[in-house]
């Protein structure tokens, strides 16, 4: 039940945000040619198209190139600790479910130091949009191998090349209980990047989007085979997923009609090695959100807060013996 008069007033008096309203004071300091720029543009477009009030929107990040994101947005931001973007975002959402929460994290931040939080955040399924910028390298600290670096990548920490196969963020996410939204996007297909982020935003629950992101500085040409040969990309389309424009269909001819409700096929797609799948792999809108499950139906009036505090203090109070 709404408040009809003020709703109508709000609509009438809406300010109308433009893309500029979402730009932070600092121009992005990512390298020229960095895929992060495209992600930022897509998110700013989304904010404008959804007319999200900047004061009701929060961007939370950890550490890394990706995590500079909040600085470039004109909204609330929390540039947190390495690997701890998700717990901070969960705290925000739990206390302020009315805010739109976005998380920017990277392959190092999410899959290495923050891996434990990542796994549990999927299980908690709190309503937020998580953008995992995956450039397969630690860029901010000038090239160290990350969990998603392909085998053999030579870096400052692996001068003879990495020895292990990379971790697959999609199949990991799809393997966790309560997973509710998993998608993959590529920064070099901006149209689809926008559509996927938009779908993720509209999904109620933990929307995990892995974005393959080019790093021209430390991983140049890493994605060239796919950027230059659209036939190596596999675009996932479905009436319940994303649909392609005619122009995009012409360029990317390899397509698969994939129902995002099909978890088994989603896991198969996630494990493809030659082709890069782009689209929505999995979506289940019925998974309950932790903030709803744990929602307390009471107002935090000053009296309630005082009462709870008194109760807690009383547990530690030493009463003088009579």
């Amino acid at each position: 039940m709404g408040i009809p008069v003020s709703e109508c007033l709000l609509k009438l008096m809406a300010e109308g945000y433009t893309l500029d309203d979402y730009r932070g004071d600092i121009p992005p300091r990512w390298c020229t040619g960095c895929g992060d720029n495209g992600i930022l543009a897509a998110v700013q477009r989304l904010c404008r198209d959804e007319q999200l009030p900047p004061e009701r929107t929060v961007f939370v990040s950890g550490i890394g190139c990706s995590s500079r994101f909040p600085h470039y947005m004109n909204a609330y931001g929390f540039h947190g600790l390495h690997g701890r973007a998700l717990p901070v975002a969960e705290g925000v959402k739990l206390r302020r479910p009315d805010l739109h929460v976005f998380v920017s994290t990277g392959d190092g931040d999410c899959c290495s130091i923050g891996a434990a939080h990542w796994i549990h955040a999927i299980r908690y399924n709190m309503d937020m949009t998580v953008l995992m910028h995956d450039n397969q390298i630690y860029g901010l600290t000038k090239k160290q191998a990350s969990p998603t670096s392909p085998r053999g990548v030579k870096s400052n920490t692996t001068p003879r090349g990495t020895y292990l196969d990379p971790l697959n963020p999609l199949s990991v996410t799809l393997g966790v209980a309560n997973v509710s939204f998993v998608a993959q996007a590529a920064d070099w297909i901006p149209e689809l990047l926008y559509d996927i982020i938009s779908e993720a935003y509209h999904h109620k629950g933990f929307s995990f989007v892995r974005i393959l992101q080019r790093c021209p500085e430390f991983m140049p040409h890493q994605f060239d085979p796919w950027v230059q040969n659209p036939d190596k990309m596999l675009l996932l389309t479905h009436e319940k997923g994303v649909q392609l424009s005619a122009g995009l269909s012409k360029v990317y001819r390899k397509q698969e009609a994939h129902d995002p409700g099909d978890l088994h096929r989603a896991r198969e797609i996630a494990s493809l090695s030659e082709q890069i799948p782009v689209g929505i792999l999995y979506r289940d809108s019925d998974v309950p959100c932790y903030e709803d499950v744990r929602m307390v139906d009471r107002l935090h009036t000053p009296d309630v807060i005082k009462g709870v505090l008194e109760e807690e203090f009383d547990k530690f109070t030493i009463w003088p013996s009579e």
């Binding site: 893309l19 020229t32 040619g33 543009a41 920064d187 149209e191």
Partner: peptide, 22 residues
């Protein structure tokens, strides 16, 4: 299809510019 990577705009920002979608 532009990925907003700034390569062209840094080369000549009068020749290349960004539209309302960046």
């Amino acid at each position: 299809r532009c990925t907003t990577c700034n390569e062209c705009t840094e080369l000549n920002s009068k020749l290349f510019a960004y539209d309302e979608n960046m």
